[in-house]
Design a protein around this nucleic acid. Structure first.
Lengths: 164, 164
DNA sequence: CTAGATTAAATTGTGCACAAGGTAATCGCG
DNA sequence: CGCGATTACCTTGTGCACAATTTAATCTAG
């Protein structure tokens, strides 16, 4: 039976263009809500959410280049350059050109940047407590989201022409 | 063999402050990747991704107020007011003050705005095809994300004081 | 060794996302 | 009725996010 959608109705429940049917909106609104949840916790550290992500990378591997952040976070230089400069202004890191290749900017944590990690340690459990999910649930969801993201990235990488 | 975690804590795999352990980063990066996937499709319609969400709401219920968008999309006036003005500039809708309550701004689709829905009909399947997931998978993920988002929203609503 | 290509990062401009503060319209209570 | 509170929206300022362009350093072919 052809579902004549003529003017949006006739057959009920067949219009795909509704907000609540969009996986993308579920993803988008969940992501914004999660960022709002972090905001008061991170503001105690003087960080925004993207800045926190950069610090997570640096706490794992100090001395990384901006291009390393770009790869790890999938953000571009237009986002990262000013963000890293704000972290430098807060004296959490220093930016220095690589002596071997003057194009590269190396990021090194200051003492202040390293010690901020101790203050940040309590954040994961605070968030877990408030998000109202079991750890297993969160782990499962994380796995699925990473899989989705990786599929999207590989598609985006292999079809760069469609970036109208 | 225990991989001595630099100076943090001797016991391997116990540092919670790493990027790949963060559910929030999986969510954040998946959301950004999804938006990039939509971008070339939406740019054919002359829409950004948040503008598309607003149009979805209006296609469902024309004549809604800005406060209706605010509730539905969980975005605030600082985001919605200029966004809606850009849609008006593109002649997809008109903004008019309610005669009964001059504070309210009513949004009505123009003919152009209504007919854009037909051009948008092919978007959901294009996205589904490219996202590399079965419809069942996407549906399942959507359900989980909505549940998470709703828990976060109810927490955020009930603890507005922690919005430092 | 040098001209063109490539790379790493920065800059500029647009559009979110949201906090903070402001204004005008409406409501509610005495 | 009148006045304080609330509501709906707007404005300003900050910080992403990214396209497009630019700059400077490095690489590669010839």
């Amino acid at each position: 039976m052809p579902e004549l959608e003529s003017k949006e109705h006739s057959v009920p429940g067949t219009d795909l263009l509704t907000l609540d049917r969009q996986m993308c909106f579920a993803l988008y609104s969940a992501s914004l809500a999660m960022t709002k949840l972090y905001k008061p916790l991170l503001s105690e550290l003087g960080l925004t959410y993207p800045q926190y992500l950069v610090m997570l990378v640096l706490w794992e591997r100090d001395g990384i280049r901006v291009s390393g952040l770009k790869e790890r976070l999938h953000l571009d230089y237009g986002t990262l350059t000013p963000l890293v400069k704000r972290l430098e202004k807060q004296e959490l890191l220093v930016r220095q050109r690589s002596p071997e290749d003057e194009r590269q900017v190396i990021l090194r944590l200051t003492q202040r940047g390293r010690s901020l990690k101790e203050a940040a340690r309590r954040i994961p459990e605070q968030v877990a407590g408030v998000s109202g999910c079991s750890l297993a649930e969160l782990e499962e969801l994380k796995t699925q989201l990473c899989a989705l993201r990786n599929r999207l990235h590989s598609h985006l990488d292999s079809h760069p022409e469609e970036r109208a």
